[in-house]
């Protein structure tokens, strides 16, 4: 394939960079709201043993429980974890892109 047809097939020569901050906010929102909604969902469903599996997260998130108070803590922990994961993914991605682009 000649250079002409090659560039015809090229939509963009740019390799995307990930905005770490933006990905952190997105993942943070997803994590926080996700855990918050899941907790509330289980509370509203009720039953004998409310959210016994979700409760296991307390192994990692100190003080978390499937309760109304726990839902707020879950919001905080979820957001924090999601934010850190998102930011880390963005950071590592950009570093690797930088190294490979050299």
């Amino acid at each position: 394939m000649g250079t002409d047809s090659k560039s015809n097939e090229e939509l963009s020569r740019v390799v995307a960079k990930i905005q770490g901050g933006v990905l952190a906010v997105v993942c943070g929102l997803m994590g926080g709201l996700g855990l918050f909604i899941m907790t509330i969902w289980l509370l509203l469903e009720g039953g004998e043993q409310v959210g016994s599996h979700l409760q296991l997260l307390s192994n990692f998130f100190i003080g978390y429980s499937v309760t109304w108070k726990g839902s707020l803590l879950g919001l905080f922990y979820g957001a924090l974890t999601g934010g850190v994961l998102g930011w880390t993914i963005g950071f590592i991605y950009n570093r690797v892109v930088g190294i490979r682009g050299r």
């Binding site: 939509l11 963009s12 020569r13 740019v14 390799v15 995307a16 994961l85 880390t88 993914i89 963005g90 950071f91 590592i92 991605y93 950009n94 690797v96 892109v97 490979r100």
Partner: peptide, 21 residues
């Protein structure tokens, strides 16, 4: 604008990032 909107994701870089995390 088109270069940016259609910028490619680097599969290896995203693989390394998601893999590490």
């Amino acid at each position: 604008l088109i270069e940016i909107v259609f910028a490619k994701l680097d599969p290896v870089a995203l693989g390394v990032a998601v893999g590490t995390v």
